[in-house]
Amino acid sequence: MAVPGLAGSSGGRRQPFLHLSENRIAYLLVLPTLLILIGLAVYPLGWTVATAFRSDNLFNPLAARWVGPRNFEFLFFNDDTFWKTLRLAGIWCAITVPVQLILGLFLAMLLDTTMRGIGILRTLIVIPVFITPVALGLSWRAMFEPIGGLLNYLLQGVGLEKSLWHTHPDTALLSVMIVDIWQWTPFVTLILLAGMQGISPEVVEAARLDRVRGLTYLRRIVLPLIWPVVTVVLLLRLVDEIRIFDVILIITRGGPGSSTLLASMNIYSIFHAGRLGVMAAYGVLMVIAINIVVISFLRVLHRQEKATRQKVSA
């Protein structure tokens, strides 16, 4: 059912509305969205592609000129940070997305209850999502501060080693990840929770009678039923994590050295230095990379989904 394109079963039956076929009406319904999105994407895309082949300095616009593919050559062969930032982005997504999903699922299971006051708990848990990353990042940075910060104070209080957190190349990436995971796990939780509430009480009751519990319940009953929602959450988190920016900008701005210089941060620092051509070239490469990642990710998910459904029906 979740495989797009299979929806609708009333065939080519004509509707009274303008006597259009279902297919046409569907297109009409999507049209405004497409118009807005494409309308706002044409110029930025065109500008980016054109600028990628120019040497254009924000601080010296009059010296701009066409340079062909040189910006790409620079990124591939001369830039120390380009490959590193791609690697870092890979590591970042490979850790933050699964951890958010697992933690989010765990929290959702905990909060999927009929206890009194659960509304308040569910409200409270989403607070991190509502704090603008600018303020949140700064507050966490103050807590990370290695000598007088709260976290090391607490660590020492319980007799553990201090950490250098965001100030050392070895721990900086992990520190920023903690903030990101902390902020976005509740987002995953809330969406999964909404999915879980769609599971009909009869199914839950049947599972209870069959004594299906814990992980088995999760794996055999819950996950297959909320799979479309899980897919969407994974995808949206993935797209946002690949382009992660605000929180890194505020906490480390890519440092120490280049240890937290993820793709968007690197693009921004190139922009900050005024190198519009290199920035645009990077942007073009990034859009291509994200497309590849997301499409292959969708393929895997669809295959997974079919397998899951077969298992359920078996």
Binding site: A7, L29, V30, L34, A41, T48, S264, G283, M286
Partner: peptide
Amino acid sequence: YALARMKMRGADGMSLLILSLRFMPGVVI
């Protein structure tokens, strides 16, 4: 609604197109 529940040719591709318009890093645009 159109993409999920109506009989629409190329609904898959359309969904992906819509999502892909969010791939551009905000920094660049």
